[in-house]
Design a binder for these strands. Structure first.
Lengths: 148, 148
DNA sequence: CCCGATTAAGTCGTGCACAACTTAATCGGA
DNA sequence: TCCGATTAAGTTGTGCACGACTTAATCGGG
């Protein structure tokens, strides 16, 4: 590692932040052709992942799981509802809260999505060890930046 | 590593892609208060980084450096021009190309930006070794996903 | 019991990000 | 030389992402 990486360099190529930004967009671009076949965008896919794990999720919990604001989720969920994959209903016990649940079409889509993680894992081309290291470091980054 | 990480799990928490997505947004959020003081957004800051390295850059080269389409850069550059930091001029030798250059204000902003990388490095809180590993893995990911 | 504080969801405005397309200039082989 | 192909930049439309704000429901101390 040269000295430029250890201090106030303004060189683009030195920046972890840029590597992160580029990698994130590159990976979501890799998902696009696969998700197009399911009629989903990448953030919509993430919402579906949460719902396939646990149905009947309040918008609040979706936001907590995905680190997204209600101002991002509300329109996104409207689009998922319009495409027939989810339902949104006010909870009877707390009228402030809206529970998101899967329709039959949303439940069925899970099977078509099963092939995606391994297909993506393929294009990412990391060894399991590299993958584990990457996840570890990214979680560190997320926690540190957020916990500021 | 449990077996869920090695195959078709649809669990959100297993996904490298989500860790990447969350970390990227988390880090750019960390930049926001610092960049607000310079009147820049994060992608605008990346453009300025390129220009501080090398002035008189064609839009095409900016796109190549940042992996961005002209449809993203054109409006962004208009906003930077409107805020007085850059100039855009058609090249005389090739009228298709537009060269982007710094104004005096754009050049001066560099000094105010010098403190940013170390401040961010602080909030990221990785050791130099972790940082190098992260950059290495992210570049691998970017190259593999793009080279598909 | 009530009212100020908190909480959940949503609206609005701005700025990316990208696909599909358009416009205009340059290139290059027949 | 000329014209079809390529290239550079920009336009348009859709969908995030987020800050600032609004609306409505619930909470909780006096």
């Amino acid at each position: 590692m040269d000295q430029a990486t250890t201090r106030g360099s303004l060189l683009l190529e030195d920046q972890l932040c840029f590597a992160l930004y580029a990698a994130s967009r590159s990976v979501t671009a890799g998902y696009r052709p696969l998700l197009d076949e399911l009629g989903l965008t990448y953030p919509q896919y993430l919402v579906m992942l949460v719902l396939w794990e646990r149905d009947q999720v309040p918008v609040r919990d979706l936001g907590a799981a995905l680190h997204l604001e209600s101002s991002t989720l509300s329109p996104l969920l409207k689009r998922l509802e319009a495409s027939g994959l989810i339902r949104r209903e006010r909870r009877a016990d707390d009228e402030r809260s809206v529970a998101v649940s899967l329709t039959q079409a949303g439940t069925d889509l899970r099977e078509k999505a099963r092939a995606i993680p391994s297909a993506i894992g393929e294009t990412m081309g990391l060894t399991p060890e590299q993958r584990a290291t990457a996840i570890h470091l990214l979680r560190l980054l997320t926690a540190n930046a957020a916990g500021n």
